[in-house]
């Protein structure tokens, strides 16, 4: 016999709602029901007008980020059983403009990810004839965890600094800079340092650390940013002895 969970969802339909409004649904669930499953049940059985993003159902695509009782979570990785006996309140990801219901406008986040040159840069063009670039396990360990990011945006919803001022480059993009700067195949660090050295770069962070707490993939953006501060501080001292730069 399935239990029933009361789920309140912050709805926003721009053509009819002046501002977001709460709407409640009673959803049957068992031990295996994820929040994404519950949203599917609402959409199929109770209210086809509900909008939310989803794709893979297995914490790979990063589409179903939302606020679950005020905490940023992936809908597919959060389960109703963990909220048994209580109520579930779902809202669109914090710190992003709501487009519709649980769908947010992520353009600013995507633009930031793209702006920091998140790809391997080499000084000389390489061809297939050059063969593989090998790496030792130790060299790979330097950046691997930071390459696990799925661009879900939960860290931006968790970051109070991004919430206060969205000029801040933010956790995922800064962790991605760290990922490429610490890859032995990459030679683009000098190009990326200018993004780190800005006020809106690593210096916009006050080390609250919530980004690392909410990351569903075990990435530690807060650590990447603090290491970025050390790099930026070294860079600051070096440029003092290089006039004209």
């Amino acid at each position: 016999m399935a239990e029933i969970m009361k789920m309140s969802i912050l709805r926003y339909r721009p053509e009819t709602d002046e501002k977001p409004v709460w709407q409640s649904y009673d959803v049957p669930y068992n031990h295996e029901t994820s929040i994404l499953d519950a949203l599917g049940y609402i959409k199929d059985e109770l209210d086809p007008t509900l909008s939310y993003r989803w794709s893979c159902r297995m914490a790979i695509c990063g589409s179903c980020g939302m606020m679950v009782n005020g905490q940023p979570k992936l809908g597919c990785k959060a389960f109703l059983r963990d909220y048994a006996g209580g109520e579930l309140k779902l809202e669109a990801l914090a710190n992003f403009p709501i487009e519709r219901d649980l769908v947010v406008d992520m353009s600013d986040f995507i633009a930031k990810l793209e702006s920091i040159k998140p790809y391997i840069i080499t000084q000389e063009p390489r061809s297939l004839d050059d063969g593989c670039t090998t790496q030792t396990p130790k060299q790979m360990e330097q950046y691997k965890q930071f390459s696990m990011c799925i661009n879900c945006g939960l860290c931006y919803a968790a970051c109070p600094q991004y919430g206060l001022d969205n000029k801040f480059t933010g956790p995922a993009a800064l962790a991605l800079i760290h990922r490429y700067n610490n890859d032995t195949r990459d030679q683009g660090k000098a190009e990326r340092m200018k993004f780190i050295n800005e006020e809106a770069g690593v210096w916009g962070c006050t080390f609250v650390g919530n980004c690392s707490v909410v990351c569903p993939k075990g990435v530690d953006p807060a650590a990447a940013i603090q290491l970025g501060k050390v790099e930026s501080a070294k860079d600051y001292v070096i440029q003092m002895f290089k006039p004209g730069e």
Binding site: K194, S232, A233
Partner: peptide
């Protein structure tokens, strides 16, 4: 893009 002077204060 301008460089932040924060490293001085962050160092202290």
């Amino acid at each position: 893009m301008s460089r932040s002077h924060e490293p001085i204060f962050w160092g202290l």
